[in-house]
Simulated assay, not measured.
Amino acid sequence: MGIHSWIQEYTERDWQTTTNGTVRFALIGLGWWTVDVAIPAIESSTLCETTVLVSGSKEKAERIADEHDIEHGLTYDEYHDGAATEAYDAVYIGTPNAYHFEHVKSAARFDKAALCEKPLEATAERAQRLVEAAEDADIPLMTAYRMQVDPAVRCARELIEDGFIGEPTHVYGNNSQSILEMIPDPDQWRLDPDVTGYGTSVMDLGIYTINTARFLLRRDPVAATAYMTSEHDGFEAVPDERAAFTLTFEGGVPLVSTASQNTQGDTQLKITGTEGQIDLDPAFHGKVILSLNRDDIHIDIENTSYSGDDEMEAVFDYFADRVLSGEEIYPDGHHALVDMETIHAIHEAAETGSSVDI
């Protein structure tokens, strides 16, 4: 089959195994992402329903629940005490990083499946405890890596597996934005190391490059080097206003990446091989554009029917599909632990100025 025919026949939801059933969600943490993205994504989904909202503010939970015709609005304490457990089957955790473990621990106690935002926790050690809590209770646990369900990324993955670029030789990635323009508050949680974890740019942005490269190559990093600096007053509590790091993947494939929370927005991921190249640009925010280059093949693919918001709808449906069918979850807790260990190694490498094994 020619490359053009292959792409035309590519199935967006190649992961779907069932169209029957509904998973009822309790959404924990009502920040802008949950309210503006997660709630509409579930409303548009085919296998999901929101039945419970959980917030630090009872008034906020009940107000947003009323606005979206959702049955229950709870406080965190009420959630942890087991209120309304009969009304939901799974939890979506969209709180700041350092609170993920406590919410998964309660989900495990109530025998509820857990879909947790990335990064999995604030540190690798806390993430390990989170995974163990889910395993001990035998509940499904997934990390919400939305790039893994994006059709362009999945198409790139299959092309790499089929040998379109030959043997992968190196990877370049970048993810940057201006967090203080997006959220003009220097006291926000992403700039608080007690809540965000190791830092801000690699934890929140660099993780996209790391995890998407892992997904595309089906290889894990084994060593890291890094440089970080923070110059702006708003970033004085975190080490990585700007970060550059290299990873060595299994098989000797190097990745070079940059990330910053205080610069012009830009996202790119480029995989180069012995015979060709695949470029995602933009890669991580909004509509992904896939560029293929090999010999006389030069194709730019933009899926006009698919937007960045559709990624979260697919994340929820993918998770629900796995919960309903019992099929294996690819980005499970152990998968996410590799990213946490990698980020830990990147920060250690920046502190020591040395290469760190992962």
Rank of each mutant, 00 (worst) to 15 (best):
E181V: 13
I139R: 13
F235I: 03
I297S: 07
T123W: 14
I358P: 00
L217A: 09
V222C: 04
V338W: 09
G163F: 06
E302W: 00
G21L: 09
A223I: 01
E117D: 13
E313G: 05
R218H: 09
A133V: 11
L337H: 04
D300C: 04
T17D: 10
S260D: 05
E167F: 02
M142T: 13
N97T: 03
I93S: 12
G286S: 05
I207D: 01
F164H: 11
A244R: 09
G56K: 04
T267D: 14
E9Q: 12
C48M: 02
F284Y: 08
E241N: 10
L255S: 04
K287R: 15
K112H: 09
H103K: 09
N174H: 14
Y10N: 08
D204C: 12
E12L: 09
H285N: 04
Y227N: 07
A144K: 03
T263S: 08
V356D: 02
H72F: 09
G199M: 06
D136V: 08
H170S: 09
A87N: 11
L191K: 12
A314Y: 15
P40K: 08
P96W: 03
I301N: 06
G353A: 12
V149K: 14
I329M: 15
V104Q: 15
Y79M: 13
D36S: 11
E132V: 14
I64V: 05
D240L: 02
S355F: 07
A98F: 02
A87V: 04
L324K: 06
K58P: 00
Q277R: 15
I3H: 08
D317W: 07
D111E: 07
L247S: 11
A98P: 00
L290V: 02
W33F: 10
M340H: 05
L247G: 08
D204A: 11
